[in-house]
Every structure is written in C-alpha cells, then in structure tokens.
C-alpha cells in the first residue's frame, strides 16, 4: 500500500509512510514503562527518605534523569519523526541543543558554589549546616 503524494519540488525523497501503526503503539508502551519505572524510583526516594544516604539519593535521581532523556529521545525520534529525516537536518537540531550539557554542568555547579559560600561565610567559617542536621538536640537551631 502506498500513500498518494502531491508533488512538492522541495522534497527529493518521500519518507516511507506505508508502515502501519505498530511502531507508534510500541513506542507508547516504551514511554509508559519508562514513566512507571521513573515513578517507582520516585516512590523509592519518598519511602526511604534520607536514610539511604546522599550518594544513593543522587544516584537514583541521576537514573531518573537518564530515563527522562530516553523518553525525550523516543518522542523526538519517533513521534516527531526526526529519526526519519536526513542526517544533515538532524544535526542542525541536535548540535545546538548539545550546548545544554555545558549549561547544566556550569549553572548547577554555580548554584552549589553559592550554597557553600553562604554556609561558610565565604570560606571564613566551617560549614555549619551538616552539624545542625546531625545534632541530636533539635531545639538548637
């Protein structure tokens, strides 16, 4: 079965649209499963609170972030059909967005640096926040 197409002088090759809706539904299930895994990890963080330690919390949050990137990939590649475009076009979209990698690293590090400067009076006093959290006497805030 081939879909009828009008003649557009701009378009040299029509992508093949004759495939059924099987792939669309497959991606729907992929996105649903990824979301359910994310929610399960979210509930894990909620149920465990801060008992599991900073490193485990951060590792879980980063895992959720990676799953989010995977969802974004499937939406852009399949639902938005970017994966069906020619390579040159894919690159004009993806390469500028790669700047986000640096933005995220730089700005989150900047935020973290501000927190340290505030907590230590710009480096002149030891960090007090962690001591407060560990203090058994809660009235000393």
């Amino acid at each position: 079965m081939s879909a009828q197409h009008y003649e557009n002088p701009e378009i040299t090759f029509q992508p093949d649209h004759s495939g059924g809706t099987k792939k669309i539904w497959r991606i729907f299930w992929v996105l649903s499963v990824l979301t359910i895994v994310e929610l399960a990890l979210g509930y894990f963080l909620y149920a465990k609170g801060t008992d599991i330690g900073y490193a485990t919390v951060m590792a879980t949050k980063i895992t959720i972030g990676v799953l989010t990137i995977a969802k974004a990939y499937y939406i852009v590649s399949v639902f938005m059909h970017l994966g069906d475009e020619i390579r040159n076009f894919i690159m004009t979209i993806i390469v500028p967005l790669a700047l986000f990698v640096w933005f995220i690293i730089a700005f989150l590090a900047d935020g973290n640096s501000w927190k340290n400067l505030r907590n230590t009076n710009a480096g002149s006093t030891p960090n007090q926040t962690e001591q407060v959290e560990k203090s058994p006497n809660e009235t000393q805030h």
Partner: peptide
C-alpha cells in the same frame, strides 16, 4: 533556561 535557572537556585539553598 527557565529550568536551569530553577536548578541553580535550588542548588544554592540548604
């Protein structure tokens, strides 16, 4: 930019 700004502020407070 909005989300990164949010992240920056969130990282900067205890």
């Amino acid at each position: 930019a909005f989300l990164i700004s949010y992240g920056t502020i969130r990282f900067s407070v205890n």
